[in-house]
């Protein structure tokens, strides 16, 4: 492929999917990094910062691959810093505000379990680059699940106060979990090409794991039909949260295009 040649439709869907994977990681990584210096205790502050680092690292790998697919001179920075909110393809769950520590933990837990089962499929997928990025990431996600599920149990099955806060967090976040399993146009297309399974296939495993942890945390299960969300983050429709994240994250590159630091 020569530069500037428009990429064909099937590559374009793979490109969109790669950006979707990258955006999920970048936005959640950014959210987590907002805790740096503000965690409840230093060790947990470091833990969440390290998870943020893993997520941003995974995002970079996906953005670099997206740049390769696009093949028009775009770089990882172009994608991270120079796109508008409606071009981001992350799920709504990861852009939700941090809230209290309990909500941050629960958001991480719900997402990590999803990522774990998704990447177990992706590491076997026919696209070799995505397979190797996800194989690498799975080892890190394994730690993220352990860490976040222990916290969900500790807080849910903790004091009256911590239990109530976890309950609230569950209430706030549960409307964003269905989106994980509703395929976007590009997910349907790459599933059709055999690159990836339909995300609906990992729904059952995700629910089983999440419910097992919630049970241990003495928290109520997520109701089956809680999809009150009409937006699709995967298709570029976002809550106002993302605009705030981007205006902070992109301010430097927007003001001084191409600056290095």
């Amino acid at each position: 492929m020569t530069p500037n040649q428009p990429i064909n439709i099937s590559t374009n869907q793979l490109f969109n999917y790669t950006l979707h994977l990258a955006d999920n990681n970048l936005i959640l990584g950014h959210r987590n990094s907002e805790w740096t210096g503000h965690g409840p205790v230093l060790e947990q502050d470091i833990a969440l910062s390290n998870i943020a680092l893993d997520l941003v690292g995974q995002a970079r790998n996906f953005y670099q691959y997206a740049a390769q697919l696009k093949n028009d001179g775009s770089t990882e920075d172009t994608f991270a810093y120079l796109r508008d909110a409606n071009e981001f393809k992350n799920v709504l769950l990861v852009e939700q505000s941090n809230g209290d520590w309990g909500k941050t933990i629960l958001r991480q837990f719900l997402f990590s379990v999803y990522q774990y089962y998704l990447y177990q499929q992706l590491e076997k997928c026919s696209d070799r680059t995505i397979a190797s990025i996800t194989e690498k990431a799975l080892k890190e996600i394994t730690y993220h699940i352990r860490w976040s599920s222990e916290w969900v149990i500790r807080l849910g099955d903790g004091t009256i106060e911590s239990h109530a806060r976890m309950n609230n967090a569950l209430h706030e976040l549960s409307e964003f979990t269905d989106e994980l399993f509703i395929p976007a146009s590009y997910e349907i297309e790459i599933a059709r090409q055999g690159i990836m399974v339909d995300p609906v296939f990992i729904n059952a495993r995700w629910r089983e794991k999440v419910e097992a942890i919630l049970r241990e945390a003495t928290l109520p299960f997520l109701s089956e039909d809680n999809n009150k969300q009409s937006l699709s983050g995967k298709e570029g429709q976002h809550t106002e949260n993302l605009i705030h994240i981007l205006s902070e994250m992109q301010s430097l590159q927007r003001a001084y295009p191409g600056c290095e630091w």
Partner: peptide, 13 residues
């Protein structure tokens, strides 16, 4: 173990 994450991501405290 004091913390699963130490001074860098690859270390525990």
């Amino acid at each position: 173990m004091v913390s699963r994450f130490g001074s860098t991501a690859c270390k525990a405290l």
